[in-house]
Design a protein around this nucleic acid. Structure first.
Lengths: 104, 104
DNA sequence: TTCAATAGTCCCATACTTCCGAACTATTGA
DNA sequence: TCAATAGTTCGGAAGTATGGGACTATTGAA
């Protein structure tokens, strides 16, 4: 059974997206997720050094900023970056930030 | 007499720029400054509701992120957005964020 | 030179965040 | 039914932001 964890996502705001991506850990998570199309949050996206609760908190922040959408699939939560939605709201922004994140 | 307040500016990093601009107050300051070419920080850029010490702190953060350069001119400090430097490091980023800040 | 005014910075107390471990919830599979 | 797995929630410790007041530096006038 598939269900959205937070179906009613708030508006995507510039400050929200920027502060969500301003954290290196979250930027790295988003970078990891954008490659795949679906991914488990804990195992796949976050660095292993981080506590589970911290990872969960980062995902909450990303969700609340409208950067990712989480669907619950059985025991695991799958997070997808809302590329299309972000791009509709702020054209080019996400791609540009991720491009610069690549470069280091 | 003109002198730089912090001559040795650290490297401009993506996380630094993003978190500097993620704060709505700072984004507004940068927006205000980019219009003019030189501007006084307190009076010109910051919203009047903010305490002087808070404004000073925001400018310190912007300086440390490499977003602005502050020169001391007599009794006042003039802040300039380092558009060229930021653009050299992260082409298109600042302009894009400011464009979206207009709209949002 | 001295004094008041102005523009910022520094310091400190309070309020808010973030991070982590521990306890909890929900789902699956044996 | 029970253990394992994946996340969330809670509470405390550590760090960060805010604002008030004291301080510094420069100017311009008396």
């Amino acid at each position: 059974m598939v269900q959205f964890v937070h179906p009613a996502t708030k508006d995507i705001t510039l400050a929200g997206v920027l502060s969500a991506l301003a954290d290196p850990a979250r930027l790295q998570m988003v970078k990891a997720m954008i490659g795949q199309h679906d991914c488990m949050s804990c195992a796949a996206a976050a660095p292993c050094t981080m506590a589970k609760s911290t990872v969960s908190n980062h995902f909450r922040i990303l969700r609340e900023a409208g950067v990712v959408q989480t669907t619950k699939r059985g025991v695991e939560h799958r997070n997808v970056v809302r590329e299309a939605d972000i791009d509709a709201r702020f054209p080019g922004l996400l791609k540009l930030i991720l491009t610069h994140a690549e470069a280091g």
